[in-house]
Structures are given as C-alpha cells and as structure tokens.
Design a protein around this nucleic acid. Structure first.
Lengths: 339, 339
DNA sequence: TTGTATGCGTTATCAA
DNA sequence: TTGATAACGCATACAA
C-alpha cells in the first residue's frame, strides 16, 4: 500500500469516527479505551497506513526515543561494530534510534556529552570501557536527568551495568595452558580496568587450582602509547633467561603483537611458545597458526546493554535479561604441550 | 555555566530586547538583520546559554537533520568504523545526526529503508558497497524525495557518488611486483563490483606498462560463501605446476587467508610467495610478515560522502571536496624479488 | 528591516 | 470512558 506522508491523528480519528484523543490513547496503550473503539482505531490505522510522526511526539513528550552509544575510536578491532550490531536490534524492537559517538579525545569527553545532550538530547547513554568509569561524564548525564548503562565498570550495582563472565573464560583458557604443562605463563594485561581485573582473577584462579604461585615478573601492564612499546616489552619478556613458555593477552590484537615478536625472534608458535588471546575477534581465526582465544559475547553485550537501558531504565518496565553473557575458551592451534 | 533546559526563543528575545522572529533570523543566518540587533541576539544567546530545540525545528521544517549510513554487517574488518569516524565529523560540523544501519539481510533492504524512512525520516542516505547499486533501495529513497550518496557505485555521475583512486593505488602495487621480477601475479578479486573493476583495471594497466599479457587462469572471483571456499581456491591456485609467485587480493582480510594457506603449504612469505592486500586495515601491519597493501582513505571517504550529501544535496550549497581520496601503495615486508 | 500571529502533529488537561 | 482545546518550541506568512 502506498503510504501517504501527511496523515495525522485527525485523519485516523475521522476514519475511525472517534476523537484524536482516543486515537492517541490507543496508540499509547492507554487501558481506558472501550474495546469497540480500540478496534475501530486500529483498523483505521491499518486502512490509512498512518505512522505517527516521531518528531512531533518528541517535541510534545520531551523524550527523544534515542540512545547514544559512546565508544573509544580505536578502529583496530571489531568491538564497536559488534556492539552496534547487537544494540541496534534492541533499539528496533522498542522503536528507539541509536546514535553512535566514536570518541577520539577522552579529556574533553564530559564537554562532548554536554553538547550531545544539548543538541540531540538522547534519553540514555551506553558507556563502554575504558569510559565506563568516567565520573565527569556520569555527572553530566545525571545532571541532565538521563539514564546510563555501563559496560564492565569498576563499581558494580544491579541497575546500571552489564557484565560478562570474563573470569570463567580466562580461567578455562589458562587452565588449558597449565594442563599442557606450562608453568611460566606471561600475562599482558590492562590491570587497572575492570576487564583487566577480571582477566587477572581468572588467571590467578587457574594457578590456584593447580597449586601454583603467581610470578609477578611475568606481568606486562598496559595500555601503552604505541605498538612499538608493546613489542619492546614483549621482546624483553621473551629474552630473559627463564622466559615464559606461554602468553595470555588482554585482547586478540595484542596477541598479534606477540605473534609478530615471536616470529622476529624465531620462536615458533605453538612449539616454542603458546599464545592465547581474548575476544575472539573474527580475524583471530585467520592468523597462522589460528589463535586460541576466549570468546567474548560482544553482540550480546550490546543487546543486554541496550535492553536494560531502554526497558528497565527509560521505560521503567521489568527487564528479563536473556542474553548469553558467558565467555568461553576457543581452542585453535596456538597452544601446544610444554616440550 | 549551568545551562537551563527550558530556554526558548522567547527568553532570548526578551533578554535581547527584540522579537522572536529576529532571534530566529539570526540563528538561521538570515542576512536581513541589522548588525546591532544581530549582536544583541548573539550576546543574549551567550548569556543565557540557549540552545535551539532540535525536535521543534524538525517538526516545524519537516527536515530531520539526520542522515543514515547503510553498511553491510560484515564485522570482520574496520571499514564501517572508519567510515563512521569520518562521517561523524562532518555531521557535527553541520549540526546533523548520524544514524547507522548495519544490514544483515540484503534481500529485504528496500523494505528496511522504507521503515527507516517512515520512522526516523532521514534527510539523506549514504550507500556503501556492495549496496551502492541497489535499484530498489534507490527507488524507495527517491520516492520519499530524499537525497542519496553512493560510495563506489557502478553508475557514475557528478552529483551522487564518491570515489577514490583505486586504479592508481593498485597499479602502483602491481607495478612493484612486476618490478621485483614477478611474472605470474594471481588476483583474488570481486570482479563484479565497481571496486573490483577498478582494482582489475589497475592490475591490467601495470601489466600493460610492462608489456605483459594477462593470464586469466590466475584469477579467482568472489565473493564466496565461506572462508573455507576461499582457502580451497587459493590452495588450488598455489598447487598448480606453474603456480603464481605473487598474489594481489581484493582486501586485507583475504590476504590473511593467503597467508594462512601459504603457511599450511610451507610457502614462506615473501621468499616463496609475495602478497599484497588492499585497504590498509589497521591490523595488516601486525601480520607476520607485515602486509604490503594499498592504503584506502576510508575515513576521508566517509567525510567526503557526508560532506557532499549534506552540503551539496541537502543544503544545496556549493561543496568543495577537499579530502584526499588517493589510494597509495604501502610497502611493508610481504613482497620480495623473484628468486 | 522587524514583529505578530499561526501552525507543524503530537500528547496532556480537564470538563463532560 | 471520551472529547474539545491547549501546549510543546520553532519557523514563517503577512502585516507594519
């Protein structure tokens, strides 16, 4: 059916033989409408092909039916695309728009959010690491009386954050390394962010299960300024007398740097060095050898964040989280037994 | 300054001592305002911290100040993130919002666009490959009287598309291979899309410069259903009696598949096989050996598309394209002389 | 060059 | 339970 563009509630009301207020009530699920009238309105909507004007509704209600996803503009991996992919689905279901904000400069972030609020006025925000803990940003959002959901923040509560089971995934991965006989497992991690704390916890628990002590000289802490800095640190770690025989990294991208340095040092993976990444970036299976990694459910994280934000916080409905947020170890070919 | 939320043109008009119409004129750059009044209005805006209400403006003008970026939901590379990154900048400059649409199902795309138009009513759309040539989608957009800009479409015109100089980049790359002595350069390409045609043209021109014939048995045509299909085709190509000594691929992702197959076949890059990718995905420099590739200016492509769409098509202003849309060959370590 | 009054399409008020 | 009318904040026709 050809949808005429200039239909309004008045047209629907005329066709249905009721007032515009009744039409509005039906469209907004107001229970105080006689079934008979409700039917008339719904059929009039169907017949005319009427679609409510989002902007008029926005103006009148003060709600924007828009949520904003802030992510660090770090284009080297697919994290943000996957997050968007999941969040969009939920937005579509609830009739919300999604606006994305790659942020380049974290320093002025609060100011940027203030501008976004002034201009586009989103009803809620999704904060992703490493910005989930930015106090200034959260202050601005609260000052604007808007909702916020944080992905993997440091401070946990039941309402405003979404987490996945990083500890279990990493524990399983490191467990595999220890099972293969490795006793010196290096960890390249961001120890100061929540995601890093949880990875370390998994690393630690695996060691504890084996009754092994933690060797703090096997730790490299990021983030660093440049790839070269990482490579230097990795090279130094692999050059020592008692070098590690396995490496776990904060993400798959950093694992590629370990691959690179290992190649330069003529260390063959997995024979001379085992490597496990984190995230299961789609490209990780095409490295050679294919990278063993911990699958992180990023698409589901996006779904959960958008779902909780929209349903629980903005619409004040009950939200039943149904997404699978487990992290699981994916065994490929970058790990071998200690020779 | 604390920005009060309920400021309107009336408040500004009162502070400035003029009428709301004058305020409106100033805010919309109407030239018929006395300088004196203009100053008064601008200072009143500054003093009060007034920000126009986007939704009221949208309702009144019928414009949404919103553009929609459609991209294929192929999360394996950073193409979409980079495009977004560039487009957002321009949107910010012109006070537009950007809405992203990852599309999973191309079959129902026209219907999806119709729904987007009915709901969010974007003023314009950016179409990316391989959807730049979708007649049904373009029909829907035109039916809605909206603007559209296509990135690398088959049918070129001056108005509605943006291109980068693929031919020159690929020619330079293949030229390098031929200079190194290679005479059998395989090409894994999407021959049917514009981007593929242009890559092939560059490949062909390089051969012509060297007075070399094209060997059509060295061509693999995509896209294919799965990575395994690609790997099979690559393996077969590299198994022949008179196998190619170099490979050029449609993008960096496919180059990683060549790396993978080469490793499996114990072909060392670059000694036994030279490889050149396309796109300069940020991860390509971390492959081992670092991948030589053709840098594609995707961020600038996003800027140019958004700039042309907003400035030329939507705002009917003159658009002076200033972005660098050259593709240039990046030499790393995946190519060596023919031994 | 400037100001007044009206309407965009929706939801909300309040009386019936 | 329903409907007439107002109001959201802006831009513009038209009058001055």
């Amino acid at each position: 059916m050809k949808t005429d563009k200039n239909l309004t509630v008045h047209d629907v009301a005329r066709v249905a033989g009721v007032s515009i207020k009744t039409v509005s009530r039906v469209l907004n699920n107001d229970p105080t409408v006689r079934d008979k009238n409700k039917e008339k309105v719904l059929s009039a909507v169907a017949v005319t092909g009427y679609r409510p004007d989002l902007n008029a509704r926005r103006l009148r209600t003060g709600q924007s039916y828009l949520i904003c996803l802030l992510y660090f503009d770090y284009v080297s991996n697919s994290y943000s695309s996957r997050l968007v992919s999941g969040a969009i689905e939920v937005c579509d279901d609830f009739g919300f728009d999604l606006m994305v904000r790659p942020v380049k400069d974290r320093k002025s972030l609060a100011e940027q959010v203030r501008n976004i609020a002034a201009r586009s006025n989103p009803d809620g925000y999704i904060l992703t690491p490493p910005m989930s803990d930015d106090k200034d940003v959260i202050a601005v959002i609260e000052e604007e009386n808007k909702s916020v959901i944080k992905i993997l923040p440091m401070e946990l509560d039941d309402i405003s954050c979404v987490n996945c089971d990083i500890v279990a995934g990493v524990r399983e991965a490191v467990n595999h390394l220890l099972t293969l006989g490795h006793r010196r497992v290096a960890i390249l991690n961001f120890f100061k962010v929540r995601g890093g704390l949880l990875r370390y916890q998994g690393y630690e628990e695996a060691h504890r299960q084996f009754g092994l002590p933690i060797d703090s000289t096997l730790q490299i802490d990021g983030p660093m300024e440049s790839d070269e800095d990482y490579e230097r640190a990795i090279r130094q770690m692999l050059s020592g007398e008692d070098r590690p025989t396995a490496f776990f990294t904060f993400n798959d991208y950093l694992a590629t740097l370990v691959y690179k340095v290992a190649s330069q040092m003529k260390l063959r993976i997995p024979y001379d060095l085992s490597v496990i990444g984190y995230d299961d970036d789609p490209s990780s299976k095409n490295l050679w050898p294919p990278l063993s990694t911990v699958h992180q459910p990023v698409v589901n994280l996006g779904r959960a964040a958008a779902g909780k934000l929209i349903q629980q916080q903005i619409l004040k409905q009950t939200y039943n989280h149904s997404e699978d947020l487990k992290c699981r170890y994916i065994q490929r070919s970058s790990c071998g037994p200690l020779l």
